Amino acid sequence: MSIPYKPLNYPARQYYQYGNMRQQPMSYKSLQEALTLIMQAVAGEREDELFYDYLISVAPSQEEKDIIQSIRNDERKHNQMFRTIYQDLTGQAIMAPTDIMFEKPKSYVDGIRKALFGELAAVERYRDIRAGLPDRFYRDMAFEILTDELKHASKYNYILNLDLSRMMGK
């Protein structure tokens, strides 16, 4: 007596008995979902740049300024990559808003915390973008962006640890 195989309920997925070929969907996210998320990511570009410039201006050490500058530069690269992906797939350019303001954090450390959690939230959004892209070329670009975001989160954790060390007098 065998237990019947019960497939998971994913769209366009066909299962066959164990050991036989199975057809899998291209992705669990759609291209349209990915394109919408790319537009949202690019739309926040100017606000992010103002925020990073502010953090750089108030960073207490050159090391921290250099770290945040490297993150900001990566973010500029990511935005260009997202714009390229969007234009390649739609034939249209994304226009970013020009009249952007940003809210200054209460303190440098609050800004670093906000940046850290912003990077982690971006990982989740960019994972969905990657899942909706149609081929390996664009998925690899999104993977590069995703891994940079994880690297940025680690760098912000390092900066928070530097602040903790300063507070403890070490």
Rank of each mutant, 00 (worst) to 15 (best):
T90A: 00
S30A: 05
D88S: 05
Q62W: 11
S30M: 07
Y52C: 08
A41I: 01
N79C: 15
Y54N: 05
R46C: 06
M81G: 01
S30F: 05
I38F: 08
D88F: 02
Q87L: 00
Q32V: 07
E33T: 06
T36K: 05
I71L: 12
Q40I: 03
E49M: 14
M39F: 07
E33D: 06
D66Y: 06
Y52T: 06
L50A: 06
I71H: 08
I67P: 08
E49A: 12
S70R: 12
N73T: 13
E63V: 04
K65P: 05
D88M: 04
A59I: 12
Y86C: 01
D53H: 09
E45I: 00
G44E: 10
L50N: 06
I71P: 07
E49R: 12
K29A: 11
I71S: 08
A43P: 03
M39K: 12
K29N: 09
F51T: 15
E33R: 03
Q69E: 14
L31Q: 15
L37Q: 01
V42D: 07
V42N: 07
D88R: 06
R46P: 06
A59K: 12
Q87V: 02
S57Q: 06
I67G: 01
G91T: 01
Q80D: 13
E64I: 15
G91C: 01
V42F: 09
D66A: 12
M81N: 07
V58W: 08
K65D: 04
Q62T: 14
Y52H: 14
G44V: 09
E47M: 12
Q40A: 13
Q69F: 10
R72C: 08
S70P: 07
Q32G: 00
F51R: 15
S70V: 08
R76D: 03
S30T: 15
A34Y: 00
D66N: 15
A34R: 03
G44L: 10
Q62K: 15
E75V: 14
E64Q: 15
S30W: 07
T84R: 02
L35A: 05
S30G: 07
K77Q: 14
Q32S: 14
I56V: 15
D48H: 14
V58N: 07
I56T: 04
E75W: 11
S70N: 10
A59G: 11
Y52N: 05
Q32P: 00
M81V: 11
R72V: 06
N73E: 13
I85D: 03
K65F: 04
S61G: 04
R72Q: 13
Q80L: 13
K29F: 13
S57I: 04
D48L: 14
E47H: 04
G91E: 03
E33I: 03
L89R: 01
S30Y: 07
A59M: 13
L55A: 05
E64K: 09
E64M: 15
I71F: 09
H78V: 01
R76T: 04
L89V: 00
Y52A: 06
Q87F: 02
S57L: 06
R83P: 03
L37E: 04
D48E: 15
